[in-house]
Amino acid sequence: DSWHDTVDGIELELHGADEELLKLAKELLKRGVSEEEVRRIIEELLK
């Protein structure tokens, strides 16, 4: 799946992010949310 590559990229960027955020990112990508949107959501949550 192409979203796996996206998640791997996000995981590299979010090496400090907790497991729950990564699960959320994967779930959003699986549901068709764009990579940009996922990054934006996670950045908001990390604030």
Rank of each mutant, 00 (worst) to 15 (best):
Asp1Asn: 11
Asp1Pro: 08
Asp1Val: 07
Asp1Ser: 12
Asp1Met: 04
Ser2Phe: 11
Ser2Glu: 12
Ser2Val: 07
Ser2Ala: 10
Ser2Cys: 04
Ser2Tyr: 10
Ser2Met: 13
Ser2Gly: 11
Ser2Gln: 10
Ser2Thr: 10
Ser2Pro: 11
Trp3Cys: 05
Trp3Tyr: 10
Trp3Ser: 14
Trp3Glu: 11
Trp3Pro: 06
Trp3Ala: 13
Trp3Asn: 10
His4Asn: 13
His4Glu: 10
His4Gly: 13
Asp5Gly: 11
Asp5Arg: 01
Asp5Ile: 05
Thr6Asn: 11
Val7Phe: 15
Val7His: 08
Val7Ile: 12
Val7Pro: 11
Asp8Gly: 12
Asp8Arg: 04
Asp8Glu: 12
Asp8Cys: 06
Asp8Tyr: 02
Asp8Lys: 06
Asp8Ala: 14
Gly9Pro: 12
Gly9Cys: 05
Gly9Glu: 11
Gly9Asp: 11
Gly9Asn: 10
Gly9Trp: 15
Gly9Phe: 15
Gly9Met: 11
Ile10Leu: 15
Ile10Phe: 14
Glu11Gly: 13
Glu11Met: 14
Glu11Ala: 10
Glu11Val: 13
Glu11Arg: 08
Glu11Cys: 06
Glu11Lys: 12
Glu11Leu: 15
Leu12Glu: 05
Leu12Gly: 07
Leu12Asn: 08
Leu12Gln: 09
Leu12Met: 10
Leu12Tyr: 03
Leu12Ala: 05
Leu12Trp: 06
Leu12Thr: 05
Glu13Asp: 09
Glu13Asn: 05
Glu13Pro: 07
Glu13Ala: 02
Glu13Gly: 07
Glu13Leu: 07
Glu13Cys: 03
Glu13Ile: 06
Leu14Tyr: 07
Leu14Ser: 05
Leu14Val: 07
Leu14Asp: 04
Leu14Arg: 03
Leu14Phe: 14
His15Lys: 09
His15Phe: 06
His15Thr: 09
His15Asn: 13
His15Asp: 11
His15Leu: 14
His15Cys: 07
His15Pro: 14
His15Met: 13
Gly16Ala: 04
Gly16Gln: 04
Gly16Ser: 06
Gly16Asp: 06
Gly16Ile: 13
Gly16Phe: 10
Ala17Asn: 06
Ala17Cys: 03
Ala17Trp: 13
Asp18Ala: 10
Asp18Val: 09
Asp18Ser: 15
Asp18Cys: 03
Asp18Lys: 07
Asp18Leu: 08
Glu19Trp: 14
Glu20Tyr: 15
Glu20Phe: 15
Glu20Leu: 11
Glu20Thr: 14
Glu20Arg: 14
Glu20Asn: 12
Glu20Asp: 07
Leu21Ala: 03
Leu21Lys: 01
Leu21Thr: 06
Leu21Trp: 05
Leu21Gln: 02
Leu21Met: 10
Leu21Val: 09
Leu21His: 03
Leu22Ile: 10
Leu22Gln: 08
Leu22Ala: 04
Leu22Cys: 04
Leu22Glu: 03
Leu22Phe: 10
Lys23Trp: 11
Lys23Ile: 06
Lys23Cys: 02
Lys23Arg: 13
Lys23Phe: 06
Lys23Thr: 06
Leu24Asn: 01
Leu24Asp: 00
Leu24Arg: 04
Leu24Pro: 00
Leu24Ala: 02
Ala25Tyr: 06
Ala25Asp: 00
Ala25Lys: 03
Ala25Asn: 00
Ala25Trp: 06
Ala25Phe: 05
Ala25Met: 07
Lys26Trp: 15
Lys26Ala: 09
Lys26Ile: 14
Lys26Phe: 10
Lys26Tyr: 13
Lys26Leu: 11
Lys26Thr: 05
Lys26Gln: 11
Glu27Phe: 10
Glu27Val: 13
Glu27Asp: 08
Glu27His: 11
Glu27Gln: 14
Glu27Ser: 13
Glu27Trp: 14
Leu28Thr: 00
Leu28Ile: 01
Leu28Cys: 01
Leu28Ala: 01
Leu28Asn: 00
Leu28Val: 00
Leu28Gln: 00
Leu28Tyr: 03
Leu28Gly: 00
Leu29Thr: 01
Leu29Asp: 00
Leu29Glu: 01
Leu29Asn: 01
Leu29Cys: 01
Leu29Ile: 07
Leu29Phe: 05
Lys30Ser: 14
Lys30Val: 08
Lys30Gly: 09
Lys30Ala: 15
Lys30His: 07
Lys30Arg: 14
Lys30Leu: 15
Lys30Thr: 05
Lys30Gln: 08
Lys30Ile: 06
Lys30Phe: 11
Arg31Tyr: 06
Arg31Cys: 03
Arg31Pro: 01
Arg31Asp: 03
Arg31Leu: 11
Gly32His: 01
Gly32Arg: 02
Gly32Thr: 00
Gly32Asp: 01
Gly32Glu: 01
Gly32Met: 02
Val33Asn: 04
Val33Trp: 13
Val33Pro: 00
Val33Ile: 07
Val33Met: 10
Ser34Leu: 04
Ser34Gly: 07
Ser34Val: 03
Ser34Pro: 12
Ser34Cys: 05
Ser34Tyr: 03
Ser34Ile: 03
Glu35Arg: 15
Glu35Ser: 13
Glu36Gly: 08
Glu36Asp: 10
Glu36Lys: 09
Glu36Asn: 10
Glu36Cys: 02
Glu36Met: 14
Glu37Gln: 08
Glu37Trp: 11
Glu37Arg: 06
Glu37Val: 08
Glu37Cys: 06
Val38Tyr: 02
Val38Ala: 02
Val38Gly: 01
Val38Cys: 02
Val38Glu: 00
Val38Thr: 03
Val38Asn: 00
Val38Ile: 07
Val38Arg: 01
Arg39Glu: 02
Arg39Asn: 03
Arg39Thr: 04
Arg39Met: 08
Arg39Trp: 15
Arg39Ser: 04
Arg39Lys: 08
Arg40Gly: 04
Arg40Val: 04
Arg40Lys: 08
Arg40His: 06
Arg40Cys: 02
Arg40Ala: 08
Ile41Cys: 01
Ile41Phe: 08
Ile41Met: 05
Ile41Lys: 02
Ile41Tyr: 07
Ile41Ala: 02
Ile41Asn: 01
Ile41Arg: 02
Ile41Gly: 00
Ile42Asn: 00
Ile42Thr: 01
Ile42His: 00
Ile42Val: 06
Ile42Asp: 00
Ile42Tyr: 01
Ile42Phe: 03
Ile42Glu: 00
Ile42Gln: 00
Glu43His: 15
Glu43Gln: 15
Glu43Met: 15
Glu43Ala: 14
Glu43Leu: 15
Glu43Tyr: 15
Glu43Asp: 08
Glu43Val: 12
Glu43Gly: 13
Glu43Pro: 00
Glu44His: 09
Glu44Ser: 12
Glu44Lys: 07
Glu44Ile: 09
Glu44Trp: 15
Glu44Arg: 10
Leu45Asn: 01
Leu45Cys: 04
Leu45Lys: 05
Leu45Ser: 02
Leu46Tyr: 06
Leu46Ile: 14
Leu46Trp: 10
Leu46Glu: 02
Leu46Ala: 04
Leu46Val: 06
Leu46Asn: 03
Lys47Trp: 13
Lys47Ser: 08
Lys47Phe: 11
Lys47Arg: 13
Lys47Tyr: 10
